[in-house]
Design a protein around this nucleic acid. Structure first.
Length: 602
RNA sequence: GCCGCCUUAGCUCAGUUGGUUAGAGCAGCUGUUUUGUAAACAGCAGGUCUUCGGUUCGAGUCCGAAAGGCGGCUCCA
C-alpha cells in the first residue's frame, strides 16, 4: 500500500467513525475529520453529552458493522448554495460555516482566512461554484476526498482516545470532542505501532524519573515545579557542566544574577507588554514592584552596561545557568517537558556587526559537537517572524537579521527548514531540533540574533574612532531548558546514562564478607580516579553493595538502577587480584593494578 | 485556562450492584542463611482509601468542589 492509498484509507476511516457516531447519537454535529500521523480524528459535538473511552467498544463495533456492510463511497457535487442549504437542513452548523468560508474564499483553512470573516455568512459572488461530497451508506459528508472505493477496504484500526479540541483551533470557540484513531494497512502493522507506543511508555521520563529516583513533584510546592533528588541533581550538574564546557573553551565567562528584578526592567525590555500574565509579582514594603525573572537577558545587559566598554573588549561573552519563572497555564504542564521554573544554560554575547559570524560559528560547532557526543541527531530550523505586530524593533532591522542568519546557515552548509512565526519577540533564531530515539523532534539548542534589546537598554561601546556604537546581542542556550533537555535525554537513553554522566557510575557487588578487606583496596583505587572527559574533574561516584543478599539479587537491583558498571568481587577475584567488570555489553576480568587505567580509557 | 479521564501502604496494583476488622507483591524492620552472575527463607510492621463538603441507617465505592497527575486543545520569550 502506498502513501496515497494509506491516506485515503485513514480518511475513509474518519468518515466511518463519524457515520458510526451518527448511528449511536443521531443528533451529533460534525466538525472536521482529517488524517494525522498514523491515523485520523474526527471532531464531534454531542451537545451536553460526552463520549468517554468506555464508549469506544460500541463505536468500534458500529464501525466494524459499516465495514462489513461494504458500502461504496460515492462522490457527487452540489452547487455551493445548495450545499449550504443542505448543511442547514441536516442540522450541521459547523459544515455550514465551512461551506460559507469556501463560498467566500475558496478555502476552509482558518489561518488563510481573514479572522473577522471566519464563520460569517458569505454574501455576493462565490469563490467556489460547487463543492464535492462523499456518501457511504446513509452518511453524507462535505469532503474533497479521495476515499477508498468501498468501506470494506480500510485495513486495521483502533480508537485511541477522546480529547477536547476547540472548533477551528480557537480557544474562544466552542469545544468539541476529538475522537482519535490509528489505522494501518494490516493488523501486523497496527500491532507493531501499538507495541512501539508500549515501548515508548517504558522509557517515559516520568516513569524513569521515579524509578531511577531523579526527581519528584509535590502537590504542596505546586504543579510544574519539579524537585531534583541527589541522583537527579548529579545528572543535571554533569549535563550542565558539559554544555558550559564548550563555551568556556571559547572564552565565555560565568556571571551571576538575582532571580528577581523591578518590573520596570521588563517594561523596558518589552516582555511585560507581550506577556503580562506570565510575570509574577511580589509587592514589597519599599513599594518596589518586583517580578520573578521570566528571562535572563535584561540582567545580563546590565552587567555589560555596568561600566564603559571599549571595542577592544568585544565580544563580551557571559555564561550562566539559571532559572527563569513563567506562570504557564495549568493544563500545559507535564513532566519535565513543560515546567514553571525553567533552568536555562543561557549565554549572551555583546559584539560588533563584524563579529556575528565568528560567534555564531563557535556556537553552531559547539551545538553540533555536544549533540553528537550525546547521540542526539540535530536538525536546524531558522525561526523567522510572521506579520504579527508584536515583535520588537524596526522591520528593516529584522529583515537584515533574518538575512544574516539565512546566510550563515548557507555558509556553514547546514540543512535547514524555515519556521515562519517561530521567532523570539526581539529577533530571529537558529533553533536546533533534536530527534530522540523514538523519532520525535523537540527544540533544544537555540542561537538568537538580537538588535532590539541593545537598543531598548541603550547599550553602547566606544569604537576605534571614538564614536559611541551599539553592540549586537547573541543569545544562546545549548541545552535550552535543562528540565526539557533531561526529559528528552532520559527517554533517549532509556535511563542508561553514559559512565561520565550516571549518578551512580559503579557499584561494587560482593559475594560474601570474606572479601571485605579486598573491597577496601578496590575503593582506594576508585577514589583515585578522576575522569577528565568529556567533563573535567569528574570524580568517580561509586557505592558498595555488601548486604547479606545473593549475588543474583544484587545484580538484578544494580541493573534495575541502570548503573553502567558493576564490579563483582568474590574470593576468586580476591585471590587473582582482579575484579569482574560487568557492563551492559558483557563481563571481563580486570587486574586491580590496571583498573584505574582501564577506567580512564573508557 | 478549556474538554475528558485518573488519585487505595514508600512503589506497582486488587477491592463485586454502597454493607462486618480495606487485600497482595516488592521495598522496610527482625531473625535464620555467607551466597559466583537478574528475586534465599520465615516472621513483623505499614493505610483518616488525595483533601474538603454533601447524599445515606451505612461511602474506598454515589454527588459537588479543590489539589495533584494523565491525554488532547490553546499557549510556549
Amino acid at each position: 500500500m502506498n502513501d496515497e492509498q494509506l491516506h485515503a484509507m485513514r480518511h475513509s476511516l474518519a468518515h466511518i467513525t463519524a457515520a458510526a457516531v451518527k448511528r449511536l447519537w443521531p443528533e451529533a454535529k460534525f466538525g472536521v475529520g482529517p488524517v494525522v500521523e498514523n491515523g485520523f480524528y474526527y471532531d464531534i459535538d454531542l451537545g451536553g453529552q460526552k463520549i468517554s473511552e468506555a464508549d469506544f467498544g460500541k463505536i468500534e463495533k458500529a464501525m466494524r458493522r459499516i465495514v462489513t456492510e461494504a458500502q461504496d463511497f460515492e462522490r457527487f457535487t452540489m452547487p455551493i448554495d445548495e450545499a449550504i442549504a443542505w448543511a442547514k437542513e441536516s442540522g450541521q452548523p459547523y459544515k455550514e460555516e465551512l461551506l460559507n468560508d469556501l463560498k467566500r474564499s475558496g478555502t476552509t483553512v482558518a489561518k488563510d482566512l481573514e479572522s473577522e470573516e471566519l464563520g460569517t455568512i458569505a454574501e455576493g459572488d462565490a469563490a467556489v461554484s460547487e463543492v464535492s461530497f462523499y456518501k457511504n451508506g446513509d452518511f453524507t459528508d462535505l469532503c474533497r476526498g479521495p476515499h477508498v472505493a468501498n468501506t470494506k477496504e480500510v485495513g486495521a484500526f483502533k480508537l485511541m482516545r477522546v480529547a477536547g479540541a476547540y472548533w477551528r483551533g480557537n480557544e474562544k470557540n466552542a469545544q468539541m470532542q476529538r475522537l482519535y484513531g490509528v489505522a494501518f494497512a494490516t493488523q501486523e502493522e497496527l500491532d507493531k505501532h501499538l507495541e512501539m507506543i508500549e515501548q515508548a511508555k517504558q522509557r517515559d521520563h516520568r516513569k524513569l524519573g521515579k524509578e531511577l529516583d531523579l526527581y519528584t513533584g509535590s502537590s504542596l510546592i505546586g504543579a510544574g515545579l519539579p524537585l531534583f533528588t541527589p541522583r537527579g541533581t548529579i545528572l543535571r550538574d554533569m549535563i550542565n557542566d558539559l554544555a558550559q564546557s564548550y563555551r568556556i573553551k571559547n572564552g565565555y565567562e560565568k556571571v551571576w544574577i538575582p532571580h528577581i528584578a523591578k518590573l520596570d526592567t521588563y517594561k523596558t525590555s518589552g516582555h511585560f507588554e507581550k506577556f503580562p500574565e506570565l510575570l509574577r509579582f511580589t509587592s514589597t514594603e519599599s513599594g518596589d514592584e518586583l517580578a520573578l525573572k521570566p528571562v535572563n537577558c535584561p540582567h545580563h545587559t546590565q552587567i555589560f552596561a555596568g561600566r564603559p566598554r571599549s571595542y577592544r573588549e568585544l565580544p563580551v561573552k557571559y555564561l550562566e545557568t539559571t532559572t527563569v519563572f513563567r506562570d504557564e497555564k495549568s493544563g500545559e504542564l507535564g513532566g519535565l517537558n513543560r515546567v514553571r521554573a525553567i533552568t536555562q544554560d543561557d549565554s549572551h554575547v555583546f559584539c560588533s556587526e563584524d563579529q556575528i559570524e565568528d560567534v555564531f560559528a563557535e556556537l553552531i560547532e559547539s551545538a553540533q559537537a555536544m549533540y553528537e557526543l550525546l547521540g542526539l541527531k540535530l536538525s536546524l530550523r531558522l525561526s523567522f517572524r510572521d506579520d504579527a505586530d508584536n515583535y520588537l524593533g524596526d522591520p528593516k532591522v529584522w529583515e537584515n537579521a533574518q538575512n544574516a542568519i539565512h546566510a550563515l546557515a548557507e555558509k556553514f552548509g547546514l540543512e535547514y527548514e524555515i519556521g515562519i512565526g517561530e521567532a523570539a519577540i526581539y529577533g530571529p533564531k537558529m533553533d536546533f531540533m533534536a530527534t530522540d530515539a523514538l523519532g520525535r523532534k523537540t527544540q533544544l539548542a537555540t542561537v538568537q540574533l538580537d538588535y532590539a534589546l541593545p537598543e531598548r537598554f541603550q547599550l553602547e561601546y566606544t569604537a576605534e574612532d571614538g564614536s559611541k556604537k551599539r553592540p549586537i546581542m547573541i543569545h544562546c542556550a545549548l541545552l535550552g531548558s535543562i528540565e526539557r533537555f533531561l526529559s528528552i535525554y532520559i527517554e533517549h537513553t532509556a535511563g542508561w546514562f553514559p559512565l561520565w554522566a550516571a549518578p551512580e557510575q559503579i557499584r561494587i557487588l560482593t559475594i560474601n564478607d570474606t572479601v571485605t578487606d579486598y573491597v577496601k583496596e578496590i575503593e582506594e583505587v576508585l577514589r583515585g580516579v578522576v575522569l577528565m572527559e568529556p567533563v573535567k574533574y569528574n570524580e568517580l561516584r561509586f557505592t558498595v553493595d555488601d548486604r547479606n543478599e545473593s549475588l543474583g539479587k544484587k545484580i538484578r537491583e544494580a541493573t534495575a538502577w541502570k548503573i553502567p558498571m558493576q564490579l563483582i568481587v568474590g574470593t576468586k577475584d580476591k585471590e587473582a587480584r582482579e575484579v569482574s567488570v560487568r557492563t551492559q555489553t558483557g563481563e571481563e576480568k580486570v587486574a586491580l593494578n590496571k583498573l584505574a587505567e582501564y577506567l580512564q580509557q573508557l
